[in-house]
Design a protein around this nucleic acid. Sequence first.
DNA 1: TTCGTTATCGAACATGATGTTTCGTTTCTT
DNA 2: AAGAAACGAAACATCATGTTCGATAACGAA
Lengths: 203, 203
Amino acid sequence: MVEAKMDRRVQKTRQALQNALIALILEKGYDSVMVQDILDRANVGRSTFYAHYQDKEDLLMGRFESLQKAFEAHFQIVIADREENNEKGTTVNLPLFMLRYVENEHQLFKALLGKQGSGKHAGHIQQFLLKYTRDIVKAYAQAPLSPHQFEIIAQYMTSAFLSLLVWWVDRDMPCSVEELNTFMMRLMEPGLKDVLEVSALWS
Amino acid sequence: MVEAKMDRRVQKTRQALQNALIALILEKGYDSVMVQDILDRANVGRSTFYAHYQDKEDLLMGRFESLQKAFEAHFQIVIADREENNEKGTTVNLPLFMLRYVENEHQLFKALLGKQGSGKHAGHIQQFLLKYTRDIVKAYAQAPLSPHQFEIIAQYMTSAFLSLLVWWVDRDMPCSVEELNTFMMRLMEPGLKDVLEVSALWS
DNA sequence: TTCGTTATCGAACATGATGTTTCGTTTCTT
DNA sequence: AAGAAACGAAACATCATGTTCGATAACGAA
C-alpha cells in the first residue's frame, strides 16, 4: 500500500466528495453539476477540493479505477481457463460475472454510463472493455479471421453487451441478472458461434 | 418552402460556419472547439454567429436535422412493405440503405458519432434510431414478447448496428459497405430470427 | 443605377464557472 | 501539549460564453 498512513480527514473528505458527485450526477446529469454543487453537498471547501483532485473528471475516475483491477483479474482467469481447457468451454461465465459486479455498484455505474453520465466516460469504459474483448476473441476463435472481421467481432461484442448493461442499469435493473444474461446470450451466441466456429462460448 | 427568399449572404454564412465546425471537430474534437475557432475559420463575426444559432450544438444539429427526414421516409417504406408482404421478407434492405447513406455524408457522421464527437450527439442519434427500431421489431416479430424482451431486442439491434457503423466511419470506411453489411448480418441475424421467430429479416 | 433594407463586422461589455492563492483555524499524530 | 498537516473562506485572476450597439457593406427591388 502506497497510501498506508493517511489522515482520517482526507479519506472522509474524498468519500464525501465522491458520494456527492455521484448523487448529483444522478439528479441533474454530469454536465450540469458544477464544482460548487459538489462542494456544498459535501461540505468541503474549494481549496480542499483542488488539493485532492484536478477537476470533476479526476474525482469520478478515481472512483472507477479501483474497480478496473477486479475486472482485469477476472479476465485473466477466463483467458487462462480457455487456453487450458481448449474448446471444451469454460467454467467461468464472464458476462454473468460482470452483470453481478455491476449490480453491486449500480449507483456508480449508472452515474458513469447512464443517460445522466458524460458520454466521455462511457467511451472510456468501452475502450477499456474492448481491449479485453479482443483478447477473448483471440483466445476463443477457431476460424481464420481477417483483421477487419476480427475488429468487427470485438466491437460488436463489446458494444452490444455494454449497451444492454447500460439499458439495464439505467432503468434500475428491471429484470434479474439471469434473465438478462439468458436473453442476451440467445441473441448473440448463435451468430458468434458461427463466425468464430466454436461449439461453446460461455456454457 | 418557408425559406424561399433568403439573402445570399445568410446561406453563405451558414454554410461556412457548418463546414468550419465539422472540420474543426475532426481536427481537435468537439469539446475543444471554441466558438472563436469557428468564427476565425469561417471568417464570420461574433454577433453574426449568435444571430443565426444559439450555440455550437444548435449549429451542428441544424445540419443533422435535414438528414432525419430522409431516414424517416425510408423507415416508413420498410414498415409498410413488411406489413403488406407479411412474413415474406421485404424488398428493401434497411441496414444496407443506411450504410450507403452514411457513406455519402461520412464527414458529417464522423464528426457527429466518431471519437471526436461529443457523445451527447451520439446518444441523441441513438435515441432517434431506437424509436424506429421499436417499430421495426413490432412489425416483424411473430413471437410473443414480454415488454422487457421487446425493449432488449430494440436496444440490442440499435446499438449493435450503430456501434459497427461508428467503427466503420471513424476509421474512414476500411471495407466496403457490402462487406460490412454481410458480416454484420452473419453476426446478428441468427439470434434475431430465433428470438423473433421469423424466417427472413432483410433478405 | 439608385435607394431603402438587411446582414455583417468588430469592439466593448456583462456573466458565470474554473482554478489559484493566502491566511487563519481546526484537527490529527506522536 | 506541540508541531505538522488538513481544512475553510474569501479574494483573485482567467477564460469562454453570450449580448449589445453603431458603423459599414452587400443585397434586392424599382
